[in-house]
């Protein structure tokens, strides 16, 4: 019999709420309170998330963020700074001991990215995994992914770019050398793509979410059944907003 996992469609949230919800699902699942979960979500307002090891002040132009009403948050996962605007973000939470999860971290990146690649194939878009944590379409990045393992539980989250405004992205991201900023922007424009660009038209969030749902179902051989976030998770998440992701001491930690 096929296993059933939970699908959460949590809609739009602020950066601190989004990161708190992912962590809440991880903690709730580690306590056996909720099934393995795949979540699809968006960021309102637009936001930058930085990797656990990055320095906020070095990666993000905070004054420009404030001027543009753009949020920022430090993730619990490593990896790079990401500008979240027109995208589908997913997260998957599943126990390390689940039989389908490879013990080896790099292998589990590959497997979870395979679910996204399957999702792209539902949309008739061939894509490739580019280790460690990218997915490419025709050699250009369309998805970035980051994984953590805590409490014997895997949390991987990642982005699927639906559209991208590189100029806007660089108005809030800092670059190491202002002199080469224009060249860098040109480079990123050449290296990054989006569903809109690949398909030549806008694809709705729901269409992408449905494709990615099928991608996870096929890859993990499970049925994803839409569920709701539990009272336990809401409480955990409110705590994490207050004590962690909404807090300067976390976001400016490094």
């Amino acid at each position: 019999m096929t296993e059933t996992w939970r699908l959460l469609l949590t809609g739009d949230h602020s950066a601190k709420e989004n990161m708190a919800i992912d962590k809440a699902i991880l903690v709730a699942h580690s306590k056996g309170l909720v099934p393995p979960t795949v979540r699809f979500y968006r960021w309102r307002p637009s936001a930058i998330s930085i990797g656990y090891f990055q320095r906020l002040s070095e990666e993000v132009d905070l004054a420009s963020c404030d001027a543009h009403g753009i949020d920022y948050v430090r993730r619990i996962t490593g990896g790079g700074a990401v500008f979240h605007e027109d995208e589908l973000t997913y997260s998957i939470v599943v126990s390390e001991s689940h039989p389908s999860i490879p013990k080896h971290i790099l292998e589990s990146y590959g497997l979870i990215c395979q679910a996204i690649i399957e999702g792209f194939s539902v949309l008739n878009i061939p894509s490739d995994y580019a280790p460690i944590n990218d997915i490419l379409v025709k050699g250009k990045k369309i998805s970035g992914n980051a994984q953590t393992r805590k409490l014997r539980t895997v949390l991987q989250h990642g982005t699927i770019l639906m559209d991208v405004d590189v100029d806007k992205m660089f108005s809030v991201l800092k670059v190491p050398n202002e002199k080469i900023k224009d060249k860098l922007i040109t480079n990123v424009k050449e290296r990054v793509t989006s569903l809109r660009h690949v398909k030549g038209e806008h694809i709705s969030f729901d269409t992408v979410a449905d494709a990615m749902k099928q991608g996870f179902e096929r890859t993990f051989n499970v049925t994803l059944e839409e569920g709701v976030i539990t009272e336990d998770e809401l409480q955990l998440s409110e705590g994490f907003v207050k004590d962690c992701f909404g807090n300067d001491s976390w976001n400016h930690m490094r």
């Binding site: 990797g51 790079g80 944590n133 490094r254």
Partner: peptide, 27 residues
């Protein structure tokens, strides 16, 4: 990206912060 302070004579590290877009487990 590494911020480092060290003693110029002894070359001993006084303080170091290692940042960047890599991964480490546990973080």
């Amino acid at each position: 990206k590494i911020s480092l302070s060290f003693d110029e004579t002894t070359h001993k590290i006084k303080d170091i912060m290692i940042s960047g877009d890599f991964f480490a487990y546990p973080e």
